[in-house]
């Protein structure tokens, strides 16, 4: 456990030292979401109806941005080799890395989402649900993304490959994330969607460390 916390604080400290990188994902999130009105026009009703989908899709893409670096720096400077050899289970290492990624990417996205909701003229009554759905969904994005990042270590064009591997697996999160928000905005019961988001989170919490650790081991062989 101390190894887990140690790795987590190390990664967070590294991220803090390079704040520009972390804020890049948020900037991308806001900027790309701000492009849609130019594409579909400024009509307020249309934008309000699109808001849940746009926010979730751009969040999905923004999370991808920082995935390539998740293991790459450690892979290149050799510290990953030490992590594989360390007594601490590699699954915990993957979990710590994914958690650090979520704290530096997912959490800022959640903080920026209300701003986008405001820009899109979304009903403010949906804001708590937006934050709840993103709080349950974005950790899964980091976890599934960690699998993709681990699999592409040492690959040619790894950065281009990650979206191809990760995006199809993220579709369920997108579906239930948007559905929860749509239900809340439409006055329906968002509970089942939220439950599914939670189930997906728990599922990826189990699957991602196992698959990610297997991927790291074969990358180090």
């Amino acid at each position: 456990m101390s190894g887990f916390l140690g790795l987590l604080t190390r990664d967070l400290r590294l991220a803090l030292r390079r704040r520009a990188d972390a804020s890049l994902a948020v900037l991308f999130f806001v900027l790309s979401a701000a492009l849609f009105p130019f594409g579909v026009g400024p009509e307020a009703n249309l934008l309000a109806r699109m808001a849940p989908g746009v926010i979730w899709v751009t969040a999905l893409l923004a999370v991808l941005l920082s995935l390539e670096r998740l293991f790459l720096a450690d892979y290149e400077d050799g510290s990953l080799e030490l992590m594989v050899l360390a007594p601490q289970p590699l699954e915990l290492t993957v979990l710590a890395k994914a958690l650090a990624h979520w704290l530096t990417t997912g959490l800022p996205l959640i903080a920026a989402a209300p701003l986008l909701a405001l820009l899109y003229n979304m009903d403010p009554a949906g804001l708590p649900m937006l934050i709840l759905a993103m709080a349950l969904g974005t950790p899964s994005l980091s976890l599934i993304g960690a699998i993709g990042a681990a699999l592409t270590l040492g690959a040619r064009r790894g950065g281009v490959l990650i979206p191809l591997l990760v995006l199809p697996l993220n579709i369920p999160i997108l579906i239930f994330g948007v559905a929860a928000l749509d239900a809340a905005l439409g006055g329906l019961n968002p509970r089942p969607h939220i439950m599914f988001l939670g189930a997906l989170f728990l599922g990826s919490l189990v699957l991602a460390p196992i698959a990610g650790a297997a991927a790291l081991r074969q990358a180090m062989e």
Binding site: I147, L151, T152, A155, L169, A215, A219
Partner: peptide
């Protein structure tokens, strides 16, 4: 790597 991906 592809085998792990296929199982996931």
């Amino acid at each position: 790597a592809a085998a792990i991906l296929a199982l996931v």
